[in-house]
Amino acid sequence: MNWRQVFTRDQSRHEARVVGWVIPENIRCVQCGICSYNCPIEIDVRQHAWLGKPVQDSHCLTCGECVARCPRGVLRFERNALFENGGKGA
């Protein structure tokens, strides 16, 4: 398998949906915008990364598209406290 195939496979890999939100780590980020470009509901994830703020948009599907596609591992999922006890709140 050549590396382009590896990469394509990576791109189409969807992380399992999790209960939580996407957290950016801005020292890794170079603002390329691949995250925002691939967000199915057009959340400007890149802007969150610039500000170092979690994507707390209530519309976020936590589909994992931005996390999987970021070429620099800027984004990660974190379970938020609210859902820690099976959605019953912290």
């Binding site: 170079v30 603002q31 915008g33 470009y37």
Partner: peptide, 20 residues
């Protein structure tokens, strides 16, 4: 995003998306 130019070349990003 200057580093984003690399992804513009590969076709992973359209030009307008580079703008900050």
């Amino acid at each position: 995003s200057r580093p984003g130019l690399a992804y513009y070349l590969t076709g992973e990003l359209p030009e307008y998306q580079l703008k900050l």
